[in-house]
């Protein structure tokens, strides 16, 4: 069971780098949705005795992160006719390298963290940290509104991985609440993306600078 789990984590880490290295928005949405799908599978693998509630939560996560949210995002970019992130703040290759760097850093850093005794999968905490860092890179180094949202999703995925350690602490209500909030957040963001595009004829967030001192 642990080998499968580790394989999934490695895949998630690889998807981070892919997401950093692509400029095509459709590809990026697909990568992020695949990542969400893999994350949804993880609780099914990690627990020896699967409770009905956590199975329910993970099926919902697969459904939401792997299907509904990506389809909302795909619709949003189809409506605004945008295909690529043309000019990221730092290039695609440098951001991939930066992503690899933070992944390596997370692996090194996690070994010095005081982790709980017991059978914590060794890759889990570093994978979570690396995914959070990659989400931050996407959030800050991309200029299109929609790519920044993708960064937020990757960040959220990273936190979700950490949450796998604490399934007992998160009652079903809370897990459902977190997922529902994520769904509504993306829904609101898609509406905003549409408005930004209508008003500014672009999704370039550099245009959103009229409010400042």
């Amino acid at each position: 069971m642990n080998t499968w789990f580790n394989t999934l984590l490695v895949l998630v880490l690889a998807l981070n780098l892919f997401a950093l290295g692509t400029s095509r928005l459709v590809t990026m949405i697909k990568i992020v949705s695949l990542q969400g799908l893999l994350l949804g599978l993880m609780p099914l693998l990690i627990e020896d005795h699967l409770a009905v509630t956590s199975a329910l939560a993970s099926i919902l996560a697969i459904f939401l992160k792997g299907m509904i949210i990506p389809s909302m995002l795909l619709r949003a970019i189809r409506d605004v006719h945008i295909k690529r992130e043309i000019e990221p703040l730092i290039g695609l290759l440098p951001s991939m390298l930066l992503g690899a760097l933070v992944t390596g850093f997370a692996l090194l850093f996690a070994s010095s963290l005081p982790l709980a005794e017991g059978d914590t999968p060794p890759l889990l905490v570093p994978a979570s940290l690396a995914t959070i860092f990659c989400g931050f890179i996407l959030l800050t180094m991309r200029l299109k509104a929609i790519t920044q949202v993708m960064g937020y999703l990757v960040l959220e995925n990273g936190i979700y991985i950490f949450g796998l350690l604490l399934v007992e602490a998160m009652p079903l209500v809370v897990e459902l609440g977190v997922l529902l909030d994520l769904f509504v957040a993306i829904f609101v963001v898609c509406i905003m993306v549409n408005h930004i595009n209508k008003t500014f004829s672009s999704l370039d967030t550099r245009l959103l600078t009229s409010l400042k001192e």
């Binding site: 959030l139 509104a145 920044q148 957040a185 963001v189 905003m192 930004i196 959103l208 600078t209 409010l211």
Partner: peptide, 9 residues
């Protein structure tokens, strides 16, 4: 719009 976007993000 700008304010809402910044607020949300």
């Amino acid at each position: 719009i700008e304010a809402t976007w910044k607020y949300l993000l």
